[in-house]
Design a protein around this nucleic acid. Structure first.
Length: 690
DNA sequence: ACGAGTTTAGT
DNA sequence: CTAAACTCG
């Protein structure tokens, strides 16, 4: 039966570890014999080597997938390599495969690698096709009325929910898979955990069952239960009423399109019944799905956003580089019970309620004023559902580096949040046994608890539970100071730029990020922490400067050019087809075609890489902007243009003239775009669907 | 990333 | 008078 070699196709599994609604797999099955491959190449991830619990999940999930594939007639070929592409080449050579199918990823590393994979393998005569399996809509499908990417979540999500066509319907799993011949291609054994990790991992299996069909069960459970109460319960730190789907979603065990469809069915049902709460819950849940979508959207449109704040002024924020603070935060010894409980839970379980993630990260950035990339990296290392795109988005929101994020100057007080999210202190008592006898009245602020009460509860502050490592009012003052410093430096650098100094003042010379601390492996040493971890630690202010990403060349323009740029730049970028919207009124079949073509086209026009929004708009300050919609401050951190090919680093063509198209006199490409926009409108008016 | 309470802009 | 925008813990 092994249809020997010729003509068989490789389905390259990555973060789409499911057989259901997997377009790449479906395409492989349609075209004949299939070789399913997973390549473990963590070296490619740079310092984002997956954490222990994440690797544990991956291991389980792969073995689950292998079992499913075996029942369908093939199996999963696992390879270990430092370089996915050369590994694919090797598999292709040894099996004679003629096609490669895979599903899209949107993290910066994958964008570059997958683009290269297409170039390299196509050059070898392999047909390469890629698909959307991770999103409701591809990032380039969701544009504003001027065909530019949205810069706020609200705009983005509104658009997603009102697109003229529905997300693709989920595909059924294949009934049978014809196995390609892998007899000449030896599988590698992948080591996902070392011996020291096995013990800790054993506990995980009690709480979680990875694997796509288990994901499906988890989804059903959620839909039939917690979803109705979702809006009610989400205020609580403790509730088991979250969907618990995120790790499944991260590894693509669950199709977000399926989730969306099933949830929408519930929504219609409950709307008909007049179930107000249920409908509200649905909207909230969908919004969290939307944030996940948006994280991919942001990553695609601003691929450096996991390294670098999107609002430029944050570049000048004097982060407190203090590993003592960092350690206290990690160990749950900050002196703020809600924060500490969260950090202990994270450490113990790899899981944290969404609400508490906000609390601990906000504390990290606003009170401790540590560089947010450290926190993000710690989340990456410890979360079971660690997801670079989602976490980058989350941390950027918290850090106030997004136009619709929380203002930076506001400090969330863990004491008040404690009584909001954990009104009875149950959550704190569960994770901080040393406080378990403290009455609810004091549970979220032990530092001003009367001595007698503390004694009765067996607490000695500074000894078995720390005093606050930073007081809130001190933090507020320090934050104010830091912010004014930041604005000063920002202004200084702006005038420097205006005085004709080098435009590209963001490029590599002054742009090393604050390095991760040496012990970023984050394993918690059990050394008891002193009362005040900052004693003796040198506290210094440093810029968190623009990191240099090896794969991209980053350009920072000044304002004048970026405005022009906004209009007429069609910066070239490999992945996005120019005519993405061209057949909006296409049939489903045509749309599928389009879907499959996406990311193969080279003559492409990206939506302008622009981030010139005003933040906090209305409270207009010193600014001179003439932008019609934005009245407030315009950030100088305007267009940053990722260049997709790692090799083409020279940025000679700052205003590339479009050679396929008629020339660009300011609005050229918008002829097409306006044209398409009309189609879109017409389409939705006619209610055409496919 | 909130959400309840309050102010202000818009019709 | 309603909706959007602020404020604030």
């Amino acid at each position: 039966m092994g249809s020997s070699g010729s003509g068989c196709s490789i389905v390259w599994f990555r973060r789409d570890l499911r057989v259901e609604d997997n377009p790449a797999l479906a395409a492989g099955v349609r075209s004949g014999a299939v070789i399913a491959v997973f390549i473990w190449a963590p070296e490619e991830e740079g310092h984002y080597y997956p954490g222990r619990v994440s690797r544990w999940w991956l291991k389980q999930s792969l073995s689950h997938l292998d079992t499913s594939l075996k029942s369908l007639g093939t199996s999963l070929l696992t390879k270990r390599s430092a370089d996915s592409i050369s590994c694919l080449l090797q598999v292709i050579k040894s099996t004679g495969a003629k096609q490669l199918f895979f599903n899209h990823l949107y993290d910066p590393i994958s964008l570059v690698r997958d683009h290269r994979a297409k170039e390299v393998l196509s050059a070898e005569g392999v047909t390469v096709r890629s698909f959307n399996a991770d999103l409701l809509y591809e990032p380039w499908e969701v544009l504003d009325h001027e065909n530019r990417p949205f810069t706020t979540f609200a705009g983005f999500w509104d658009r997603c929910l009102s697109m003229p066509y529905d997300p693709e319907s989920p595909l059924l799993p294949p009934k049978r898979i014809i196995s390609g011949d892998v007899s000449r291609c030896a599988p590698d054994t992948i080591i996902f955990e070392d011996d020291s990790e096995k013990g800790s991992n054993a506990l995980l299996a009690r709480a979680w069952t990875p694997g796509w069909s288990n994901a499906d069960k988890a989804l059903t459970t959620f839909l039939n239960g917690p979803l109705i109460e979702y809006s009610k319960n989400r205020r609580k730190a403790d509730s088991a009423t979250t969907s618990l789907l995120s790790p499944h979603l991260h590894f693509g065990e669950l199709s977000v399109r399926k989730v969306f469809h099933l949830v929408r069915i519930r929504q219609v049902l409950w709307a008909n019944e007049g179930n107000q709460a249920g409908e509200e819950g649905v909207n909230l849940f969908l919004k969290s799905i939307g944030l996940r979508e948006y994280s991919r959207y942001m990553s695609f449109n601003h691929p450096y956003s996991h390294e670098r704040p999107l609002l430029g002024h944050l570049r000048y924020f004097p982060w407190v580089v203090d590993e003592g603070y960092f350690k206290a935060w990690r160990q749950g010894r900050t002196g703020y019970p809600l924060v500490d409980a969260g950090m202990r839970e994270l450490w113990a379980t790899g899981w944290l309620h969404d609400r508490i993630r906000v609390v601990v990260s906000s504390f990290f950035v606003k009170v401790l004023q540590l560089p947010w990339r450290w926190g993000m990296k710690y989340f990456w290392d410890t979360l079971l559902d660690a997801d670079l795109e989602s976490d980058a988005l989350g941390w950027q929101y918290i850090s106030g580096t997004l136009p619709d994020g929380r203002e930076f100057e506001r400090i969330d007080n863990p004491q008040f949040e404690g009584y909001k999210f954990d009104p009875h202190g149950e959550y704190v008592r569960r994770w901080l046994p040393e406080l378990s006898r403290l009455p609810t009245e004091w549970i979220h602020h032990p530092w001003n608890t009367p001595e007698s009460v503390l004694q009765a509860a067996g607490i000695e502050l500074g000894s078995n539970y720390p005093l606050p490592i930073v007081k809130i009012d001190a933090a507020t003052a320090r934050l104010e100071e830091a912010l004014s410093l930041m604005w000063q430096q920002e202004a200084a650098s702006r005038t420097a730029a205006e005085n004709g100094m080098e435009e590209g003042l963001g490029d590599s010379s002054d742009s090393t990020p604050i390095a991760f601390p040496a012990d970023t492996n984050m394993e918690m040493d059990n050394e008891p922490i002193r009362n005040n971890p900052t004693n003796g630690a040198t506290r210094r202010y440093e810029d968190q400067m623009v990191p240099s990403m090896t794969s991209f060349s980053i350009r920072i323009e000044d304002e004048e050019t970026s405005v022009d740029h906004l209009r007429d730049n069609n910066n070239s970028r490999g992945e996005v087809p120019f005519n993405v919207n061209a057949n909006v009124n296409a049939t489903g079949e045509q749309r599928e075609q389009r879907r499959e073509n996406v990311m193969q086209t080279d003559a492409t026009r990206a939506p302008p890489q622009q981030y010139n929004f005003s933040r906090g708009g209305r409270r207009n300050s010193e600014d001179s902007t003439a932008e019609s919609t934005n009245s407030g401050r315009r950030e100088r951190d305007g267009g940053v243009v990722p260049v997709w090919s790692p090799s083409s680093s020279a940025y000679s063509d700052q205003f590339p003239v479009d050679d396929n198209n008629n020339n660009n006199n300011g609005t050229s490409s918008s002829y097409m775009q306006t044209h398409q926009l009309l189609n879109w409108r017409r389409l939705s008016e006619n209610g055409v669907s496919s």
